[in-house]
Computed example of a mutant assay.
Amino acid sequence: MPRDPRVDAYIAARNDFAKPILTHLRDLIHGHAPAVEETIKWSMPFFTYKGQSLANMAAFKEHAAFGFWDRLELQTGKEGDAMGQYGRLTDIATLPPDKVLLDTLDRALAKIDAGEKPKRAAREPKPEAEVPPALAEALAADEEAAANWNAFPPGCRREYCDWVAEAKRDETRAKCVAQTIEQTRAGKKLNWKYENC
């Protein structure tokens, strides 16, 4: 597949230590799996296969990083040391052997061929937001707003609670509470204006 000139530009703009790491990873992937395509996502080089995210790489001030998109199924034991799955890459010697990378690449490609989607770790549900006293008082005084408030999903209530709680001045907090009651009475979420953009 043709190489994306934006990836060329990305690599050329990185610190000298990172250029050989990124170039090696890129050449390794394309040499082994010519059907893999490359692009830029989230301001970093990304590799895709059959329209699915496969892997990404990035370079920072003092290290580079590389990882496969299916992080749970393709763990290396170095997760958490840096972005990606292979820790802080500071030179070619810090990369795992090519055979290890290619074996993992083959597993990732096979998972996409089989139609498997990456699994993500289940998130613990967040606890119910603590309603600021001024908002709790205003809700208690307005039955319609309280009924809509109770019908909102927890995340929507949390957004309102955080917004009111973050107000530093009493006047600002009072305005936030008044707007919360007005919008809640109308069944509107905090950022309702932007929902259908």
Rank of each mutant, 00 (worst) to 15 (best):
K117Q: 13
A18N: 04
E62G: 14
A121E: 13
L25P: 04
G84M: 08
H30L: 07
E38F: 14
N148P: 06
V177C: 13
K61S: 12
G67I: 02
N148Y: 06
H24S: 13
E79R: 03
D98G: 03
P125Q: 08
L95H: 14
P97D: 15
E37Q: 13
D70F: 10
P153C: 06
L22H: 03
A140L: 08
A136L: 07
P34R: 04
Y49F: 08
S43L: 06
K189R: 09
P133E: 15
L101N: 08
D91F: 10
S43G: 10
A93D: 14
T48A: 02
E144R: 13
A122M: 05
A64Y: 02
L105Q: 00
L105R: 00
M44K: 13
A129I: 03
T180R: 07
C156G: 14
K168H: 08
D162G: 15
C176R: 13
W163Q: 07
P127M: 15
F17I: 05
L28Y: 06
W69K: 14
A58K: 01
G87E: 05
F68H: 03
P133T: 12
A186G: 11
K189P: 00
I29Y: 09
E137Q: 10
V36S: 03
G84Y: 06
K99H: 09
R107E: 11
C156P: 00
M1L: 09
